[in-house]
C-alpha cells in the first residue's frame, strides 16, 4: 500500500512538472497537486507519527521545482502538521472539508516556503493574488478528489460490471 502511495505521489510530482511545462496554461502553475496526499493523510488520520512522508514529499518538491533543497521540506511538514491540528478539531470529512484543507495546506506551504527562503536571500516576488489563486485551485483539486472518493466510483463501477455480466 505504501509503495502504491509512493508511486502515486511520484506520479503527481511528475504531473506537477508537466503542468509547468511551456505551452501549458499559466494558471496550471498555481495548482499544487501533491497537496492531496497530506490532505488525505490528515483527514484519514492515518499518520500517527511525525510526518516523514511530508518531509520526503517536500524534499522531492525542492529537487524538482526549487532552487535549493530544504525549504520545501520545512513548508510541507508545516502544512502537514497544520492540517493534522485542524483535522483534530474538525469532524467534517465531506468534500467541502477536503477543499478547505487543500486551501489551508496551500496557504501554509506557500507562506512557510517564502519564509524559509527569506534568510537565504532567495525570496522571490509574492502577491496575495498569486496566493489566492494557488489556494483556490489547490482547494478545488482537493475538493474534486474528495468528491470522487465520496462518490465511491469504484463501487458503482463494480456494480455496473456485475449487472452487465448478468
Amino acid at each position: 500500500m505504501r509503495a502504491k502511495i509512493a508511486a502515486l505521489a511520484v506520479v503527481t510530482l511528475v504531473l506537477q512538472r508537466v503542468l509547468g511545462m511551456p505551452g501549458m496554461p499559466a494558471w496550471f502553475g498555481y495548482l499544487i497537486l501533491p497537496m492531496i496526499w497530506i490532505v488525505a493523510a490528515s483527514l484519514g488520520r492515518k499518520e500517527r507519527h511525525w510526518p516523514y512522508e511530508a518531509l520526503l514529499l517536500g524534499l522531492a518538491w525542492d529537487l524538482l521545482f526549487g532552487p535549493v533543497v530544504g525549504p520545501g521540506g520545512i513548508a510541507w511538514t508545516a502544512a502537514c502538521l497544520s492540517l493534522y491540528g485542524l483535522a483534530s478539531v474538525v469532524a467534517d470529512r465531506s468534500p467541502v472539508a477536503w477543499a478547505v484543507f487543500g486551501v489551508v495546506g496551500a496557504v501554509v506551504v506557500i507562506l512557510v516556503q517564502r519564509l524559509a527562503v527569506m534568510p537565504l536571500g532567495l525570496a522571490n516576488s509574492f502577491s496575495i493574488g498569486q496566493l489566492a489563486w494557488s489556494a483556490v485551485l489547490t482547494g478545488l483539486w482537493c475538493g474534486f478528489v474528495g468528491t470522487v472518493l465520496a462518490l465511491d466510483l469504484g463501487k458503482h463501477w463494480r456494480a455496473y460490471q456485475v449487472r452487465k455480466l448478468r
Binding site: 532552487p67 535549493v68 530544504g70 525549504p71 520545512i74 524559509a116 532567495l122
Partner: peptide, 19 residues
C-alpha cells in the same frame, strides 16, 4: 523534533546558496 528537522533543513539550504 520539528524545530530540529526544520533547522537542519534550513542549514542544508543555506549550505547550497552562495553568498
Amino acid at each position: 523534533r520539528t524545530v530540529l528537522v526544520w533547522t537542519l533543513l534550513e542549514l542544508l539550504a543555506a549550505l547550497q546558496v552562495p553568498a
